[in-house]
Simulated assay, not measured.
Amino acid sequence: MRLFICLIFGLSFTPVFGSEVRLAVASNFANPIKELIREFEKNSDIKIKLSLGSTGKQYAQILQGAPFDLFLSADSLRPKLLEEKGIGVRSTRSTYAVGKLVLWTPKIRTSSELLKDLKNINFKYISIAKPKLAPYGKLAKNYLRELGIWKKLNNKMVQGQNINQAMQFVLSGNAQLGLLAYSQVKNLKGSLIKLDDRYKIAQQVILLKESTSNRKFLSFLKSNQAKKIIQDLGYEVRP
C-alpha cells in the first residue's frame, strides 16, 4: 500500500532495515562470539558484523579511526587506554570473560611428562602468539621466562600473528607444543596443563560509539544467557 501511494504521487522511499553493529573481537574468543551472535540475531533485526584479530592490531586500527562500535579485547589494558583517551565511552568498560593460558599438545602425555618435555626443550618447536600483539602471547613469554628457558628457544619457537594462528601451527604439526587459550583446546584430544591463576587474563569490552543497537548488544553480552554460553566454551565469568 505504501509503495502504491508513493508511485501515485511520484514519491520514493528507502526501506528501513535493521541496523548493524560492528565488533572488533580478540581471536581467542572466536568460538564464543560466533555462538553469541547467533543467539542475539535470533531475536533481533540488528545484524552483527564481526572482525577477528589480535588485540594489538585491533587497538592500533581503532586509534587510526577504524569504524568499530564495540571492542572485545583479550586484555583489560587496551580498553582502559581507549577510555582514558576519550575514544571509548566512559563507564562502559567491563570484564566479559576470564581466560586461562594452558600448555597443550595433541599427543597423549601425563602432566609430568608434558612439563618435563617443555623444561628440557624436548620438542622441535613450540608455538605461541606474538607477545607484542596478543595478550596471551605476552603471558606465554612471561611463563617461559619464569621457567628460565625463554632465551633458549630462539630456534625452537614459532609465533602466530594471533592466538588462533598459534594454535594452527600445533594442529598442522609444525609445532609439537603450544601455549594457548584453554577455550581453544578444551574439547580437543591431547594433553594439557592448566597454569596457575597468575596466568589467567581478564578480557574487557568497551563501547566505542553510542547507539541504541550498540547498547543492546552490550547488554546482551552481560546477560545470564550470554554468560552461560561463555562459561560453557571454557571461560570464567564475573557476577
Rank of each mutant, 00 (worst) to 15 (best):
L3M: 14
F4Y: 15
C6I: 11
L11D: 13
S12T: 15
F13Y: 15
T14I: 15
V16P: 11
V16T: 15
S19P: 12
S19T: 10
E20M: 09
V21F: 01
A24P: 02
A24S: 13
A26S: 14
S27I: 05
N31F: 13
N31Y: 12
N31S: 13
K34Y: 05
R38P: 03
K42T: 06
K42C: 10
N43Q: 11
D45L: 06
K47Q: 14
K49G: 04
L50C: 03
L50W: 04
L50E: 07
S54R: 05
S54P: 03
Q58W: 07
Q58T: 04
Q58N: 11
Q61T: 01
I62G: 07
G65N: 05
G65T: 02
A66I: 01
A66M: 00
D69K: 05
S73Q: 09
D75V: 11
S76D: 14
K85A: 15
K85W: 06
I87Y: 04
R90F: 12
T92D: 09
S94M: 09
S94G: 03
V98W: 07
G99M: 10
G99V: 09
K100E: 12
L101W: 05
L103N: 01
L103M: 02
W104M: 01
W104S: 00
P106D: 01
P106Q: 00
I108M: 00
S111H: 09
E113C: 10
L115Y: 11
K116F: 11
L118T: 01
N122A: 06
S127D: 01
I128A: 01
I128W: 11
L133W: 01
L133G: 01
A134G: 05
A134I: 11
P135I: 12
P135G: 07
K138C: 04
A140M: 01
N142W: 00
Y143M: 09
L144P: 04
G148P: 04
K152A: 13
L153H: 11
N154T: 14
N154S: 13
N154G: 13
N164G: 00
Q165W: 03
M167V: 01
Q168F: 04
L171K: 03
L171F: 01
N174M: 04
N174W: 03
G178Y: 02
L179H: 00
L180G: 07
Q184R: 03
Q184I: 08
K186P: 04
L188H: 02
L188S: 02
S191T: 00
I193H: 04
L195R: 04
D196F: 06
I201D: 03
A202L: 14
Q203N: 15
Q204W: 06
Q204R: 09
I206K: 02
I206F: 08
L208Q: 07
T212W: 00
K216N: 07
K216E: 15
F217L: 06
F217R: 05
F220W: 05
S223L: 10
I229W: 05
I230D: 10
I230A: 13
G234Y: 12
Y235K: 12
R238W: 10
